[in-house]
């Protein structure tokens, strides 16, 4: 059972690393915005897995707040991109 938990956390971490490489490499600004969006979604999944693994109910509230802030951030970036031209 412990190995399974490690596999789950490893897979999520690998996805995080891939998204972070895309955030660094670019090549355009919308690519970075999409990578940031994916990173926050992955962080949400990681928080929920952590909450289940260590029986911490309160971490689910953090996931709610993260979902709200992610959407607002993406909309703000898109607004900036359209006005920038």
């Amino acid at each position: 059972m412990n190995i399974l938990w490690n596999i789950i956390l490893l897979l999520i971490s690998l996805g995080f690393i891939c998204a972070f490489i895309r955030l660094l490499r670019g090549p355009y600004l919308p690519d970075r915005v999409v990578a940031l969006d994916l990173i926050s979604v992955i962080a949400m999944g990681f928080i929920v897995v952590y909450a289940v693994r260590f029986n911490q109910v309160n971490f689910l509230d953090v996931a709610i707040i993260l979902a709200l802030i992610t959407f607002l951030g993406t909309v703000a970036f898109a607004y900036y991109l359209e006005r920038r031209i």
Binding site: L4, I7, I8, L9, L11, I12, L14, G15, F16, I17, C18, A19, I21, R22, Y28, P30, D31, V34, A35, D37, L38, V41, I42, G45, V49, V52
Partner: peptide, 29 residues
């Protein structure tokens, strides 16, 4: 369920890294 979710998140990461175009990357993530 957790394993399937983790595999899908990993595939989203691979998709954003390997797809050739921002629109295809978005369809993966």
């Amino acid at each position: 369920l957790m394993l399937f979710g983790a595999v899908l998140i990993f595939l989203a990461g691979v998709g954003i890294l390997r797809m050739p175009d921002i629109f295809l990357r978005m369809s993966a993530t």
